[in-house]
Design a binder for these strands. Structure first.
Length: 271
DNA sequence: CCCGATTCCTGTAGGC
DNA sequence: TGCCTACAGGAATCGG
């Protein structure tokens, strides 16, 4: 599932192939994604040059003079570059034909992703407005998380997965960063000390940076746009390791639903 | 405001 | 072996 490291890996994979290229044609085979693909997209994008490829949270932004394409990979989406004439599979929903002769193809079996079009400041778009700070920015530190968590009785895991608090942390990296911090994922967010939030903030940054460096986590078929899988899976300490041995204390890794999501942790190492 | 439940979708895992 | 069902999950939205 694409979280911040996978989206950033995708961005780095496709940006060199898109930046400065002009879109020649857009083919939409399936308009029904998380939200309908607007017809303004295929009406406006052809003829536009992609000036930049940016990431905000888990969104990719393709910037042109006329506006921005806003792309989200949902949980099963991926992008790849193919040659024209490559027959589309059943889940290959959208093709962007580029003047380079290459085709950017969006694949998304579960269709939780989206591709939207917006004019004006993309950060003011309803989906982007109100998002919390980037976890790798200086805005996110122990003090910030501590202050935002005061008075909250919900568990710390859904707290750090809340995009209004901090963006980009999904189910995998939430479990991993809490494990590294020694914090029990079910602990009430408002009852965690400032010192422990400092440890957690550092752990979040470290986990995300390591995952980006390894090209993300490939659980099933994620590839970074260049067809290569991510190699962070082998670095996972608890995610997907229920009943296996904790690498620190050798006790069994636990799995429990917290915040409506499967959560992995070590009951002995995380308090 | 805060928080939990619900919703979209389909491949896959697990049970029988 | 094969069929069928339950489950997984990002994040918006709704209900309490």
């Amino acid at each position: 599932m694409p979280e911040l490291p996978e989206v950033e890996t995708t961005r780095r994979g496709i940006a060199p192939h898109l930046t400065g290229r002009t879109v020649r044609a857009v083919v939409v085979r399936q308009r029904r994604l998380r939200w309908p693909v607007p017809e303004a997209l295929d009406a406006t994008l052809p003829g536009q040059r992609i000036d930049r490829v940016d990431r905000r949270a888990k969104y990719l932004l393709l910037g042109t003079r006329a506006g921005h394409a806003i792309l989200h990979l949902g949980m099963s989406g991926s992008l790849c570059l193919v040659t024209p004439g490559t027959p589309p599979g059943p889940h290959d929903h959208i093709d962007l034909f580029l003047d380079s002769g290459s085709v950017l193809r969006l694949t998304d079996p579960r269709r939780f992703g989206c591709l939207l079009w917006t004019t004006g400041d993309p950060m003011c778009h309803p989906l982007l407005r109100g998002l919390g700070p980037e976890p790798l920015s200086d805005a996110v530190d122990g003090d910030y998380l501590y202050h935002r968590s005061r008075g909250r009785r919900a568990a710390i895991k859904p707290f750090i997965m809340d995009g209004r608090i901090v963006v980009g942390i999904g189910n995998i990296y939430a479990s991993e960063s809490l494990y590294r911090s020694g914090i029990h994922p079910g602990r009430a967010a408002g009852q965690v000390s400032r010192g422990r939030y400092r440890v957690l903030a550092a752990a979040i940054k470290a986990v995300l940076e390591e995952a980006i460096a390894l090209g993300g986590t490939t659980l099933r078929d994620f590839t970074g746009g260049d067809g290569r899988p991510g190699y962070f899976r082998q670095a996972l300490q608890v995610y997907g390791r229920a009943r296996e041995a904790c690498r620190r204390c050798d006790g069994p890794v636990a799995q429990k639903v917290i915040g409506q999501r499967a959560t992995f942790y070590c009951p002995r190492c995380q308090r």
